[in-house]
């Protein structure tokens, strides 16, 4: 336990948090930073690390912006995948529902609060940022319950909805990486604690 635990702990402290933040950035509206060669290259490397095959990742900013808008903001045919947990976990089919309340409860437990962003607190990127915080600070138990009792309760639904839309390859890749990463991380945490 000690040996592996230490190893895992190291991972938890750095690279894993990097990956969480990378994914969080990826699900943020495309800007200069998350749309750079170095960013794309990191995405590729993480994909490979997770045994996800991918071609060279490189897309123009304008293309990603349109794709992002139509996938995560507004789409004229309603064919979008809302990146908010409330849409999947709530009972009212609205934003700011129980999914958001749950997320906030976890943030509070960690003694954290998201700085004000435009999106509700249960925005996918915000939740991934939070995951990074938990990894960074090594809060295993909270990490475990956040994953199993919250993030992984809705992310698969989001991912399924996204896949069904046959989205832009970049967002499909990001979503696939996120899916595999979250599941692996969750399994790892379970294995470690049992």
């Amino acid at each position: 336990m000690g040996y592996y635990g230490a190893n895992l702990k190291n991972l938890l402290n750095k690279e894993l948090a990097y990956i969480c933040r990378l994914l969080a950035q990826g699900f943020t509206y495309p800007n200069g930073e998350n749309c750079s060669d170095s960013f794309f290259s990191a995405v590729e490397q993480v994909a490979r690390a997770l045994d996800i095959s991918c071609k060279k990742v490189s897309f123009p900013l304008s293309e990603l912006r349109e794709a992002y808008t139509l996938l995560f903001i507004n789409e004229p045919n309603g064919q979008w995948a809302p990146p908010f947990s409330s849409v999947y976990l709530g009972t009212q089919g609205m934003l700011m529902d129980t999914g958001r309340d749950e997320a906030i409860k976890f943030y509070k437990k960690a003694g954290l609060e998201p700085v004000k962003t435009e999106e509700p607190e249960d925005f996918l990127a915000t939740e991934l940022h939070f995951l990074a915080e938990l990894v960074d600070s090594g809060q295993r138990e909270l990490l475990s319950s956040f994953l199993s009792a919250h993030l992984l309760k809705w992310y698969p639904h989001f991912y399924a909805r996204l896949k069904a839309l046959e989205p832009h390859p970049y967002y499909l890749l990001l979503a696939e990486i996120t899916s595999k990463f979250l599941n692996t991380l969750n399994q790892e945490v379970i294995d470690e604690t049992t």
């Binding site: 990097y18 933040r21 950035q25 943030y107 509070k108 954290l112 609060e113 940022h129 915080e133």
Partner: peptide, 13 residues
């Protein structure tokens, strides 16, 4: 990528 700086959380609650 200096991702560590990209945190959007602060200690508060």
């Amino acid at each position: 990528l200096e991702l560590k700086d990209k945190t959007i959380f602060k200690a508060a609650y």
